[in-house]
């Protein structure tokens, strides 16, 4: 058995399909490509695969990862080319690489996600946003709501970095690096809420777009992607 790690993108209209829909679409694409797939045992055999942290519906990404298990070895070029031929528009394979069978899973490995967020903040200027960011990092704890439950993480661990990439006419493009995985996942929406929502006034911000740029493992001070050669 071979374990293939694949880096792919989910863009355009396909950002609207859920993770479960995506899994189904990938399994069918793999069957169309006639890959030598490994099936799970049991009453309902499925294609043996594993995925990274799922994307929310409406969020696009240019760096998602999945592992596919194969019975026979295929060349990496073959994998990328064959699969791209049978994928629906909006899904695209960038790279493939064989990894060891006992390598930790993508979800275990990854602990940070980078997003680019476009947000409309009509009543704020660049310096206001900078102030808000400073204010956020000045607090020791980052509080957010996830599935209706209040959660708390040390700010440094929850949010590694916030950068204003671009600002014009009340619209900001912000790049953020947020905790994801076992230690706690911070959704970009939660960060925006904590930056731009104030209890004393009406919500005056609208998220226009969220795009995932990268998934990383922070080991020491370095960031590694799940497909980097280490």
């Amino acid at each position: 058995m071979h374990r293939l790690r694949i880096k792919y993108g989910k863009m355009g209209r396909l950002k609207f399909i859920s993770h479960l829909d995506f899994i189904c679409a990938i399994e069918r694409s793999l069957r169309r490509a006639s890959f030598p797939l490994v099936l799970t045992k049991g009453f309902n055999p499925r294609v043996k695969m594993s995925y990274g942290p799922p994307l929310s519906v409406g969020v696009s990404s240019e760096s998602e990862y999945m592992d596919i298990f194969l019975n026979n070895h295929l060349s990496l070029k073959e994998v990328v080319d064959l699969l791209n031929m049978v994928l629906p528009d909006g899904l695209y394979i960038y790279r493939a690489k064989y990894v060891l069978l006992d390598e930790p899973s993508i979800t275990k490995f990854v602990n940070f996600a980078e997003y680019q967020i476009e947000v409309a903040v009509p009543s704020l200027g660049v310096s206001d946003i900078k102030d808000r960011i400073e204010e956020l990092f000045s607090k020791k704890e980052f509080k957010f709501v996830k599935k209706g439950k209040e959660k708390v993480l040390p700010t440094k661990q929850a949010v590694s970095r916030i950068e204003i990439n671009y600002f014009e006419l009340g619209k900001a493009t912000i790049n953020v690096l947020l905790s994801i995985g076992d230690l706690g996942s911070v959704r970009p929406e939660a960060l925006m809420k904590s930056l731009f929502s104030r209890p004393d006034c009406d919500e005056d911000y609208v998220i226009l777009n969220i795009h995932r740029i990268g998934l990383y493992a922070k080991i020491g001070d370095e960031f590694y992607s799940p497909i980097d050669t280490r």
Binding site: R13, L14, F16, S18, V86
Partner: peptide, 19 residues
Amino acid sequence: IENILPSIEKPVRYINSEW
């Protein structure tokens, strides 16, 4: 249509692009 899709329960119903 794209402008209203983010506020829709199952946008996947309206995106075409299926194989």
